[in-house]
Amino acid sequence: MTARTPKIRLAGVRKSFGAKRVLEGIDLDVPAGESLVVIGGSGSGKSVTIKCILGLIRPDAGRIEIDGDDVTNVRGARRDAMLRKFGMLFQGSALFDSLPVWQNVAFGLIQGRGMKRNQAREIAIEKLAAVGLGPDVGELSPAELSGGMQKRVALARAIAANPEIIFFDEPTTGLDPIMADVINDLIQTCVRRLGATALSITHDMASVRKIADHVAMIYDGRIVWTGTAAEIDASGNPYVDQFVHGRAEGPIRMQVRSI
């Protein structure tokens, strides 16, 4: 691996579901230690991109590299080793209903890495504290928590094993603006503290401005613009301009029927 090798590289990644083509050749590099945010409208292929990297969805074509290693169709022990580098915060938090909060946070440590329960519990409480939750919350069931607290727990679970790469899938969806800002702050702090590489997908521009070093815009299954977070307001790209300003008129056409 050279110094220039990106942490994550996607080259020509394509994916279709039946006749519907979702990814039409995604090319994307995420440098190590940086935070890249992928923006785009609903159904533009953001979530599918992340799931292809994690191997949850198998791409039809293209190449995915982590630290320079081709992991496109990796299986078995190599896939397990690859997944140990990742933490992921899901859009709906995806906490396990049947387990108390601390076991949710410690799950990857106990089941995935075979750590002793007592040791994993200590780490879980430490991670809950890092996202502003007390040890008493650890004993609650996820169903007893508000949406914002669930997101915090999901963030604690994502960082529990000190991953090298963290994915954030719509981290502020469904939250009020203040709680969304709290989550953005936590994401920023946690990622910096870990020195991790972060890949986020969102359509919340406040999130983008807060957590992004670089931004990529996805439209119609392709990356149509990449740049730094500071460049986003003067990108000169009509797709980005329309998205940033939230205009109905522009090159991005939403699939809606006229009334």
């Binding site: 799931k51 994690l54 191997g55 949850l56 397990d80 997944l83 140990r84 990742f86 933490g87 992921m88 899901f90 859009q91 709906g92 995806a94 906490l95 396990f96 209903d97 799950f107 990857g108 089941q111 995935g112 890495r113 679970r157």
Partner: peptide, 12 residues
């Protein structure tokens, strides 16, 4: 609710 995907990302 993506809990099965979450299991995979937690090396399980």
């Amino acid at each position: 609710t993506e809990q099965i995907d979450a299991l995979t990302t937690l090396s399980t």
